[in-house]
Design a binder for these strands. Sequence first.
DNA 1: GTTCTTGCAAAATATTTGCAAGACG
DNA 2: CGTCTTGCAAATATTTTGCAAGAAC
Lengths: 138, 138
Amino acid sequence: MKHFEQILAAKGVRVTANRLLVVQALHDQKSPSSLSELEQTLFPMDKSSIFRVLCHFVDNHVVHSIEDGAGMIRYELCSGHDDCSVDDMHVHFYCEVCKHSECFHDVPIPKVDVPEGYEVDSITYMIKGICPKCRNKR
Amino acid sequence: MKHFEQILAAKGVRVTANRLLVVQALHDQKSPSSLSELEQTLFPMDKSSIFRVLCHFVDNHVVHSIEDGAGMIRYELCSGHDDCSVDDMHVHFYCEVCKHSECFHDVPIPKVDVPEGYEVDSITYMIKGICPKCRNKR
DNA sequence: GTTCTTGCAAAATATTTGCAAGACG
DNA sequence: CGTCTTGCAAATATTTTGCAAGAAC
């Protein structure tokens, strides 16, 4: 996939087979993926390799890392292919019943005024509650 | 502290010595505490006891649980002593340099419109960046 | 006495690192 | 060659549960 190679190259990340697989997997997921999930998807790639690729991606703004409601870290591709700004982010939802995370891609994170002297790098807006599917089951 | 006993009683939580100690400790902290921190503060109370007290408190809306930027769960007392609503919440800040969390008590979380059918229980608004103290050191 | 709570120990879950071999430029 | 990347194994860190003794009602 030439497309993914360009994304990596544009961010100054060397292209390797593993890295392309990780980008591919993240792209295929609709909701942010955890390390464990990626481990299954990307078998037989090693967990630590995936982990290090993800760290590298986070450092180079290829992916965001967010914490879902269950104390686990999840990863998703930065949407903007050029630069990865704060404006890039959207709201996430965590269902306390089925324990799944999803994205509200259409809902941008409202900005707030931070006190003097604080530098903002990223923002996570996480709603916890019950998703429609689980709600209808009750 | 009669005061804390009333808080617990009002939420239908049975009052025990341990629970009062946990409430006290959370009240004394300015920023949200992690389980490990509480373990030190509350020594010799057992870690698992603290954990179970915290779970019970979260279930009964005595405390909020939030995830700081480092994948750790932190706890803070619900501010409203009557009921623990979504309006109760404020913005949190995580410094990526000194790895400390703090509260922007004066900055309420802006609300967003969620898609139809979703039930909102709580919201976490976490800003990651660099705090003034760490920023001045560079 | 029946239910809830606690402490100890240990399991379960996730993340992170050390090291040597291999790939890349 | 020298640096970056990978896989295997193992160490850390953190959260969670089983069980029996004790406390509360």
